[in-house]
Design a protein around this nucleic acid. Structure first.
Length: 205
DNA sequence: AACTAAACAGAAGATCCTCT
DNA sequence: AGAGGATCTTCTGTTTAGTT
């Protein structure tokens, strides 16, 4: 037996319209076609779905059971169709972002707040570059874009500048470097570096 | 008026075959 | 292997006439 969505729509339409003829109008087919369809379904099911003693025809117990299924399934199908339409039109979906640049968060968080307000149906998946290569993930199309502080020249990947960034040195007033007008990397040669996990090659000094 | 049945048409799916 | 075309089959619907 092959129960199809159209059968669920049919049984609901006949019940809601209160008869075959009016249901056919709702479904935009002829009354005859609808009668065929119901007959065919009853033949497959092997029992009557409607009591034809009365006019208009009324649901049998088996028909009532099928109607309950239709009323449960069809709204879910309609919701899924709406979801697919949103996906198709770009109103919803999932944006995969990889971040290599830890200094970006100050800039990024307000931007993400704006994005969530503008595109509430878009899920954000943010991956920090601690244990994977963001650029490699981009090349494999696992992420949609990468926010990086290290532009590299690679075929098929283009870099767009987002913002200017200036590192600041903050120290207590008694620190030996506190009085200097500006700091060079060498000035930190005798200091202990505490940092987030990063490749040694990417540290400037 | 509401529903069913027969004959027919068109669309879609299944199958087979050929070609790359 | 799989893409694409030709042909056949099945399904779904229409029109029209008949029945309840």
């Amino acid at each position: 037996m092959y129960l199809e969505f159209r059968h669920l729509r049919t049984i609901r339409a006949i019940h809601e319209a209160g008869g075959l003829a009016r249901a056919a109008e709702v479904l935009n087919i002829t009354q005859s076609a609808l009668s065929h369809q119901v007959k065919g379904l009853e033949a497959q099911v092997g029992m009557e779905l409607f009591q034809r003693r009365s006019k208009p025809m009324k649901l049998s117990p088996a028909g009532e059971r099928l109607l309950r299924l239709a009323e449960r399934i069809l709204p879910e199908v309609a919701a899924l169709e709406e979801e697919f339409l949103a996906l198709q039109s770009g109103r919803s979906g999932r944006l995969h972002v990889a971040i290599e640049c830890h200094a970006c968060f100050d800039w990024l968080l307000p931007v993400l707040d704006d994005l969530r307000r503008t595109w509430p149906e878009v899920d954000l998946d943010i991956r920090l570059r601690l244990s994977f290569s963001a650029i490699e993930a981009l090349r494999r199309e696992e992420v949609d874009f990468v926010i990086s502080s290290d532009p590299v020249d690679l075929p098929g990947i283009s870099f767009q500048p987002l913002f200017d960034y200036e590192p600041l040195f903050v120290a207590t007033s008694g620190h030996r470097l506190a009085g200097k007008p500006y700091i060079k990397a060498e000035d930190f040669a005798d200091e202990t570096l505490i940092t987030y996990p990063v490749e040694r090659a990417k540290i400037d000094a």
